[in-house]
Design a protein around this nucleic acid. Sequence first.
DNA 1: GCCTTGACGTTAG
DNA 2: ACTAACGCCAAGG
Length: 113
Amino acid sequence: MKQENSDLYDRIYEIVSRIPSGKVSTYGAIAAYIGLVSGARVVGYALNNLDLRNVSNSVPAHRVVNRLGQLTGRAHFPGDSMKERLEQENVMFTEEYTVDIQRHYWDPREELI
DNA sequence: GCCTTGACGTTAG
DNA sequence: ACTAACGCCAAGG
């Protein structure tokens, strides 16, 4: 069965919304879960459209970081709300704008476990 | 309708 | 171990 573009975006938002508090996920993990091998860029683009959809409050995009744990999307957030948000979740930061991804890494399949 | 850019990731040197 | 280039999908110009 073929998936429409809208479904792809919706799926991304759904997975991101499933990220538990105090945990972070990566674009690649989400992309891989959907079926995209190296289409992690699409995931980022989808989150960018979040602002256009005005659902930023429903989708914790601040919990999504790259595989290095760097807050690459912090520039798209008002001020440092992304970093403060993660700190509010007791997420440990290895650097100013880098979270301890190896410790707080969360995979979409963990909910299945 | 073609080309460039982008919240990334992997492989090669 | 670090740096450079290529690849992927989607949207805007």
